[in-house]
Design a protein around this nucleic acid. Structure first.
Lengths: 116, 116
DNA sequence: TGCTTGTATCGACATTCGTCAATGTATCTC
DNA sequence: GAGATACATTGACGAATGTCGATACAAGCA
């Protein structure tokens, strides 16, 4: 071992929340929180679900409209939606018999900013 | 099942490559490729490694300077670096006994743009 | 009250993942 | 060549993940 000539980059103040990966100060808490977010995005089915929910905008989308296009069983879709919920990427609202899902734009923005 | 009143959002032409999650046209290939990228980011240790590599800029960073700060064994760090490499987020270069890692900014940018 | 429908939860299973000790492979130095 | 050093690969193991069928739980309707 010899190298160790660390080039100290300027630590930009991260927008909104959390530090960016390019920030010098990148502590364990930030890393764990970000990792959770990216883990929720690390599945094609969830990306497709998130895409549909995002496209629905502020009007949201009914779970009944997500199952068939996803090509997965209803319990599997429900499971993936829970993962997205737990990661804070979406929120749900019960309306009578149906459940509607909405994207949490700020959280998405936070994950986006961390990749600056 | 009753809802199904899909609000058709405008499909923005994604910058650089790959469609954004907000795009109407979000096919399986895009989803799989993006999911691979996010999966590489879905671990605190890898985020920390990527952070250090990113901070090193174009001068890159030696593996010998990544092991100790990560708090993981050398084989574990080597494993995570391979995951980042396979995901196209970093590239490596052998210089004598040492190995230097560099970030692939375009790939990071692509993952960032998909969260528009 | 009972039946139907939409969604969530549970249980099981195969697969993938994170981790480390041990080992392999270059490269450098003496 | 012999030893030392830097990094990658292998093998093993427990933990987490994606999937589905079966089941539970509500809410609406007859």
């Amino acid at each position: 071992m010899a190298p160790t000539k660390r080039t100290s980059a300027v630590a930009e103040p991260a927008a909104m929340c959390c530090t960016a990966v390019s920030s010098e100060a990148f502590d364990q808490r930030d890393a764990a929180e970000l990792a959770k977010g990216y883990a929720a995005l690390a599945d094609p089915v969830r990306l497709q679900l998130l895409s549909m929910i995002t496209n629905s905008g502020s009007s949201g989308v009914c779970v009944c409209d997500l199952v068939e296009p996803s090509g997965r069983s209803q319990p599997t879709v429900s499971h993936h939606l829970k993962v997205l919920r737990d990661a804070g990427l979406v929120i749900s609202e019960k309306r009578g018999t149906w459940a509607w899902y909405f994207v949490v734009a700020e959280r998405l923005q936070g994950l986006r900013n961390a990749l600056a």
